[in-house]
């Protein structure tokens, strides 16, 4: 199985590579359009800031390629948010994104000491509705670090609450994405990665 990780200088890809390595899977880090098109699975991790990520995706023509991919695709953290239409992040006007899924990303409202931003730490998954979460329940926790979120909509396949429900995972056709760091979420995260590799 050929696994490609989209290389757009989007942060900590090493953790994703190590997580796959622990599953006995080798992955290629690449921005090459042909390699991405031919891969059996594509992972799209991301950390950092949406505007600079979009700039890098545009510079490499990936903003046009990614929406055309047809194999199972997994966005992680910022890699999930970038699949939406627009985010409040990146200046007063925000940032236009890939538009593969019909959501707009907004910022959590901070309140000390109860609702700190970023939403950082382990939270449980609710309303699971996808083969991506086979074998998991609302007792299972995954690791989040983010200040912006996608609201719940018809595309939502898992929710978490902080304090109101938001999209912990989304899906449209072959495009799956999780807001949490599945590569850093212990045995639960490993199970989700395994489920993705089986899609």
């Amino acid at each position: 199985m050929k696994i490609a990780i989209v290389d757009y200088k989007g942060g900590n890809v090493q953790s994703v590579l190590f997580a796959l390595e622990r599953l006995g899977v080798q992955a290629t880090l690449t921005a090459d359009h042909d390699v991405l098109r031919r891969a059996d699975k594509v992972l799209f991790p991301g950390e950092g800031e949406a505007a600079s990520a979009m700039k890098e995706l545009r510079a490499q023509g990936l903003h046009e390629l990614l929406p055309t991919l047809t194999q199972p695709f997994l966005g992680i953290c910022l890699g999930m948010q970038l699949l939406g239409r627009h985010t409040q992040e990146g200046g007063a006007a925000g940032t236009d994104m890939l538009g593969i899924l019909p959501f707009d990303v907004v910022r959590f409202q901070a309140a000390a000491p109860e609702h700190k931003v970023p939403h950082m730490g382990w939270n449980n998954l609710q309303a699971l509705r996808s083969p991506l979460f086979e074998g998991l329940s609302a007792e299972d926790y995954v690791y989040f670090v983010h200040s912006y979120y996608a609201p719940v909509g018809s595309y939502t396949i898992a929710e978490a609450a902080y304090p109101a429900p938001f999209s912990a995972a989304v899906q449209h056709e072959n495009f799956y994405a999780v807001q949490f760091h599945t590569e850093k979420s212990g045995p639960v995260g490993t199970r989700i990665l395994e489920n993705f590799l089986k899609l």
């Binding site: 309140a111 000390a112 700190k116 730490g121």
Partner: peptide, 9 residues
């Protein structure tokens, strides 16, 4: 400190 900032402590 926890009451003074809106980031985790």
């Amino acid at each position: 400190v926890s009451r003074a900032v809106t980031i985790p402590v």
